Computed example of a mutant assay.
Amino acid sequence: MATADVIPLPATRAFSLRRQGLSGPGFATVVDAVRGTGGVYSSSPTCHLSLAARVTGFTIDDLEDELYETRRLVRLRAQRQMAYVQPVEDLPWILAAAEPGRRGRASALRQLNATYTDYERMAHKVETAMAGHEPMTLAAIKEAAPDVDDARLVVALMTRETRLVRTRPRGTWRSDSYGYARWGDWIGEAVSTVDTGEARAALARRYFTALGPATADDLRWWTGWTAGETKAVLFALRDELTEIRLGYEAPDDEVPAHVLTADLDELRASTVDPGVRLLPVWDAYPMGYKDRRRVVPPALHPRVIDPVGNATSMVLVDGEAAGVWQAGYDRLPGALVVSVALFSGAAGDRRGEIEAEAERLARSVGAADVDVEWAAERGALADGVRNTFMSPVSLGVER
């Protein structure tokens, strides 16, 4: 593996932003954006807002059509056992590398207080009850298969094993009350089997393409692999990777990392395109790294990342967190209310750009108008109540 020079933070940040579609032209389509980011978190509204930040002219229907009409995208557990939107055609190697069924099985069976044989029997009853039906809610599944113990856990494990799939939610686009369908009825063919080693190499390659350069710890964080599994994958890709050192603020603060050799020249030459983005909770960019310094200055880390690693919704200015924000969808009829709390001195005179980005976001989610509210600076997420990261701007908004 060849060794390269130290890559300064501005070049690292600029390269990652462009690969994430957060600077430059962004992505042309929703499928391109999902693939190009490494996958977006599937929770609503995160998936919609992450795509709105990256795809010019994005609307809610663009994602809905790909999930529920063309079905080129699907919601399911993937890397790090988290719920993602991923391309269906990439699932053989994504699932073989992430192993959501195997890795989640033991915990599910403990909660069910059942053996895998018991689970298979219940899963068969669920599949039989769903045969010939349109997608069914969890409540409908429970009614159709009343003798299945804890249908919620059974259905959850069946989705991990791609026996069932989440379909269109009931209610609004922000609802998490999904319908479920049998995988074969909704997607068609079963996910094919791929060699685990080759699949892990493919997933790591996708990671470095979308989120590189990165450290071994970053890769391990994003995939959920063990230290041994991560080390083995990096060894398998040794001929495709170049070892570099990421340079941070202090002269002696250099961290060993890896980049795809094919990307090295582009990385070295990268410069930041000025711009503003409003990123949602769990956005793919800040969630892609264990070490968030390319996204969040260390002094501001507690205000943007909570103690267990959740990234809150952030105002990204020239690729760096400059504040937090949250959306109010139902406070004003027909309008999206965007509440923003900037960090002192972080955004300079960029309020006009932030307001323009809020307007663009409002159009993406179908709001007829937008009302931007400016709040006082906020402190550490850990100082708030549980799950403060979900709503980092509290009451007391200053206009």
Rank of each mutant, 00 (worst) to 15 (best):
I7H: 02
L9G: 02
L9K: 12
T12R: 06
Q20K: 10
L22A: 07
A28T: 15
V30G: 00
S44D: 06
S44P: 10
L51V: 10
L51R: 13
R54W: 02
T56P: 15
F58D: 01
D62V: 02
D65A: 12
R71Q: 14
R71E: 14
R72P: 09
L76A: 11
A78H: 04
A78W: 06
A83N: 11
P87W: 10
L91N: 11
W93N: 01
G101H: 11
R105Q: 15
L109H: 01
Q111N: 12
Q111V: 01
N113L: 09
N113P: 00
A114T: 03
T115K: 01
Y116W: 06
R121C: 05
M122V: 01
T128M: 04
H133Y: 08
M136T: 08
I141P: 13
I141K: 08
V148A: 15
L157D: 05
M158Q: 09
R160I: 05
L164Y: 11
L164W: 10
R166P: 06
R166M: 15
T167I: 04
P169H: 08
S175E: 12
Y178T: 05
D185W: 07
G188K: 04
E189Q: 10
S192W: 00
D195C: 00
D195K: 00
G197E: 14
E198A: 15
A199P: 03
R200C: 01
A201P: 01
A201F: 00
A202H: 12
L211C: 10
D217C: 03
D218Q: 10
T226G: 15
G228E: 14
T230W: 05
K231F: 00
V233S: 01
A236S: 15
L237R: 04
D239Q: 12
L241M: 07
L246E: 10
G247S: 04
D253M: 04
D253A: 08
E254L: 11
E254W: 02
P256L: 08
A257I: 07
A257E: 08
T261G: 10
D263Q: 11
D265I: 06
D265A: 15
R268E: 14
G275P: 11
G275K: 07
L278Y: 13
L279E: 07
W282L: 14
A284H: 12
M287W: 04
M287F: 12
G288E: 09
Y289A: 14
K290A: 15
V296H: 08
V296D: 07
A299N: 02
R303S: 11
A311N: 07
A311T: 09
T312C: 13
M314C: 13
V317K: 11
Q326P: 00
A327T: 06
D330V: 12
R331C: 01
G334L: 05
F343L: 04
G345M: 09
G348F: 02
R351Q: 15
E359K: 12
R360D: 10
A362P: 09
V365P: 03
V372F: 07
E373F: 03
A375Q: 02
L381E: 00
G384T: 08
F389V: 05
G396N: 05
